[in-house]
């Protein structure tokens, strides 16, 4: 089947403003949008730039705005999209080239919430830090995040205030705050209680719809808010 791709192009070294590149490609219905982008890059226009790594929905490299919504190009089958597919870079980040954005501010915020297990208690020799299935299920959902930034860049609060920590970092904080083995929950909650923290969330729910891993992002954010208000993890 033939499909048309309308891709927002921008090379800051050459272009004064973004422009739309229009391409027609022949694809199989079961091909993914990523395959169509490869078709353009490999056979029609080698200057097109986009990120991708695993190409199987695990690494989160190829998050982009597809027909107005954030998606992973490697998870979208062309048969489920329109015959003309509009592809744009993620919103709210500086465009480095075409569909590649500068994600450093995103990872900076991610590092701010201490995204690792903190526990200074001495370990018993030969014994792991155990937890019950119930304790584990408390943060099961938020372990699935792949840091693709689809949620954060779908959030109007982030577009209007780039300093907002964003849904992805709150999800990552949630993963450790509610881990029974972790001891730095209060510290992370303190960080998220700052003016650019969790209270910038306006319950828009774009994050939930955008997450390619199906994480219930608003639920995680609401749990963090309740933990802050009721002082209870």
């Amino acid at each position: 089947m033939k499909i048309k791709l309308q891709i927002k192009r921008f090379n800051p070294e050459k272009d004064r403003a973004p422009w739309w590149g229009k391409y027609e490609v022949d694809v199989e219905p079961n091909d993914r949008l990523l395959d169509a982008l490869h078709e353009v890059k490999w056979r029609q226009d080698g200057t097109l730039a986009f990120r991708r790594s695993c190409a199987h929905g695990v690494c989160g490299s190829d998050a982009m705005k597809i027909n107005g919504r954030n998606r992973l190009a490697c998870k979208e089958l062309v048969r489920n999209l329109s015959r003309t597919i509009v592809v744009e870079p993620l919103m709210g980040f500086r465009v480095l080239k075409d569909l590649i954005v500068d994600m450093e501010p995103f990872f900076k915020k991610y590092r701010q919430i201490h995204p690792y297990l903190v526990n200074e208690d001495p370990e018993e020799p030969g014994r792991e830090r155990l937890q019950t299935p119930a304790e584990r299920s408390r943060f099961e959902d938020t372990t699935k995040c792949i840091l693709c930034a689809a949620c954060t860049t779908a959030c109007p609060s982030f577009w209007t205030n780039p300093d907002y920590v964003g849904p992805a970092s709150i999800v990552q904080a949630h993963r450790f705050i509610f881990d029974s083995r972790d001891r730095a929950g209060a510290e992370r909650l303190h960080i998220l209680n700052e003016s650019e923290g969790v209270w910038r969330c306006r319950t828009v729910f774009n994050c939930a719809e955008a997450c390619p891993r199906g994480i219930d992002v608003p639920k995680a954010i609401a749990e963090v808010k309740r933990a802050l208000v009721f002082k209870k993890i």
Partner: peptide, 11 residues
């Protein structure tokens, strides 16, 4: 323009 849902509309 982002194609959000009910949440974006109410926001």
């Amino acid at each position: 323009m982002y194609r959000g849902g009910v949440g974006q509309f109410s926001y």
